[in-house]
């Protein structure tokens, strides 16, 4: 049987192609599925999403007894927190609460507005939209506790900043007396 150069070329090409793809698939699959946990030296800082907020770095930017003293019935306290998106990929940003605790949370009326402003005491805040109203810190935490049910319509782009104003009013009822509550407000960006 005479083996032509054409057959040799075809056979060689098929073998090389199969070898190449098999190597690619096997090596990649092994690397990905070998059971190692997520890499630490990842690429998220150069691509993807990144967020920061005043309330993460400044204790004066969040609600606390040190900042607001003991709260009275009917009293309203406010805080404004600027959130900056520094991811390269355009992302949708949602606001939600975690770690909501304390009986008082059910008696703290909450209103959240988005807008502009730089002062944590909201002295220069200009509202643009209402993110949440008509509920309490507790109901916000139960209804919006992850990106999936988070609130807001901010489609963030690189270096964009939105300021959120949180207004908390203590209901003037007996059950709201001498109570405590805690919550963490979270912004999460997801870029596809």
């Amino acid at each position: 049987m005479q083996v032509s150069r054409s057959h040799v070329a075809t056979t060689l090409g098929v073998l090389l192609g199969c070898a190449l793809t098999s190597t690619m698939v096997v090596r990649t699959t092994q690397a990905v599925l070998s059971g190692t946990t997520a890499t630490q030296q990842n690429t998220w800082t150069t691509g993807g999403a990144a967020l920061s907020n005043d309330g993460a770095v400044s204790a004066s930017a969040v609600f606390s007894q040190a900042n607001d003293s003991l709260l009275l019935g009917g009293q309203t306290v406010t805080k404004c927190i600027a959130v900056k998106y520094t991811g390269n990929s355009p992302a949708q940003v949602k606001l939600y609460a975690t770690g909501v605790s304390g009986a008082l949370a059910g008696y703290l009326d909450l209103k959240i507005e988005s807008g502009t402003g730089t002062a944590n005491d909201c002295t220069n805040f200009t509202p643009a939209a209402t993110v949440f109203s008509g509920g309490t810190v507790a109901s916000f935490g139960s209804g919006s506790n992850s990106f999936g049910n988070g609130l807001g319509t901010w489609n963030a782009t690189l270096n964009q900043t939105v300021t959120y104003k949180f207004s908390v009013t203590v209901q003037n009822v007996a059950a709201a007396q001498n109570g405590t509550a805690a919550a963490v407000f979270n912004w999460e960006a997801q870029a596809s």
Binding site: A49, N53, S64, L70, V77, Q190
Partner: peptide
């Protein structure tokens, strides 16, 4: 989608309410 995600939580916000009568008197 293997979505990029980033979270930015605040420090824990805390509220403590008073006994309203006492706080109102002191205020």
């Amino acid at each position: 989608a293997a979505a990029f995600t980033a979270k930015s939580p605040t420090q824990t916000n805390t509220w403590k309410s008073s006994y309203f009568y006492t706080a109102a008197v002191k205020k």
